[in-house]
Amino acid sequence: MMIYLYSFLFAGIVCLIGQLILDNTKLLPGHITSLFVAIGAALDTFAIYDFFVDTFGAGAVVCITSFGHLLIHGALAKASSDGLLGLFTGMFSLTATGITATIIFAFIFTLIFKPRD
């Protein structure tokens, strides 16, 4: 059951940091999410984010930082077997789920529902 507490704390603290940046700087949500993705990729370079996912469970997976982590993780996994070309072939190998699901559901629901003015 501790994993629920860890998930709550990790996701909560990441969101708290995001909110503090939003309220105390001129950065917009777009800037912050882009920054967090880059931070996630940076953290995974030294396998720190893997530790987060193992320790904090889904709390570390749902944050957008995980997107950067999955991008570089897939790229490096391919690079270790295929060389530098693997950075290209493996980049989207792990994030495919999120991107594909977003495109498909966003498109379907956009066709079905009317925008609210």
């Binding site: 994993i3 996701a11 909560g12 969101c15 708290l16 909110q19 469970g57 889904a58 709390g59 749902v62």
Partner: peptide
Amino acid sequence: IAFLIGGLVGIIGQA
């Protein structure tokens, strides 16, 4: 609010 809601999303994900 950001802390609580973000944490809640984490819990929902884990659940």
